[in-house]
Amino acid sequence: MTDQTIQRIASDTPNVAPGFVQRVRGLSDRAVAWLFIGPTLAILLAINIFPLIWTVYLSFTNYRANQPGREVKWVGTRNYERLLGSEDIWGYLQATAHFVVWTMVLQVLIGFGLALLINRNFRGASFWTTLILIPMMLSPAVVGTFWTYIYQPQTGIFSYIIDFFAGTGAIDMIGSVTLAPWAIIIVDTWMWAPYIMLLCLAGLRSIPDYLYEAAEIDRANALQKFWYITLPRVLPFLMLAVLFRGIENFKMFDMVVELTSGGPGSTTELASINLKREAFEKWRTGFSSAFAIILFVTVFGLGNIYVKALNKVKS
């Protein structure tokens, strides 16, 4: 910002104290820039960076937030050792990985498939698009609750439909160790495949028609057009959608708590659910801080690798 610009702004602004212009005029461009980004930076430090550093510190202590008067002792790496040596923690991480991987696979397949269908611009396409998008507009807690009724083995529609077509009898999706992990995957896919569809649709609609026309001239078949035009053009959108959903599902909490409470046993106890239990039910703040750091490093590391891959695809 030049001095002339500052003067112009100041002169255009009514009721500015006379000293202000001079004070601003005395500042360098760099100082003015700091003036603008300073408050944002301060807020960022206060609510993001400081808590992160504080969490790292707490992860090496025996601190409990519900016992403010208790002596806080430095316990070294004990919390990390307990975490990494615990079969239960590895179980929660495995459950989380199973959930994230399968929801991503199913949501990409279904979301992309739906986007290809909707992109055909058939009659009533707008209506169907709106209808498909409804699940992602609902609250996850509400979705979790009403799917417990849908999955109810005696009165739920899900069990009835499966029994009607496959003659399985009543199936207990939530109470079965084998089925419960799939129960939460199905609900999440039902809810969020439309989101993937939406981003893919944006990608599909950004592909210029002349590319397909040129392919027609070159006598490319449908599969070749899909492989060489559609997929590469949509891939950055798809990868972005997977990044967003992957991070969200790594942190999944509300829907699963309402649906299964992490059960049966600990079958669907995802990392976030256990983290909440450690932090705010057991009040093992130091231990849960260490768990949070491990999860943060995992998501941050995987996210970085993924973003690099995404940039590569884009370029």
Binding site: D88, P264, G265, S266, E281, K282
Partner: peptide, 23 residues
């Protein structure tokens, strides 16, 4: 005990793992 919630959560997990999840 003052840490009853921690003790309770541990029992919830262990008995649910056995009784309901058959582990």
């Amino acid at each position: 005990e003052p840490i009853y919630a921690e003790l309770l959560q541990a029992m919830q997990k262990r008995v649910h793992d056995y009784v309901v999840a058959d582990q």
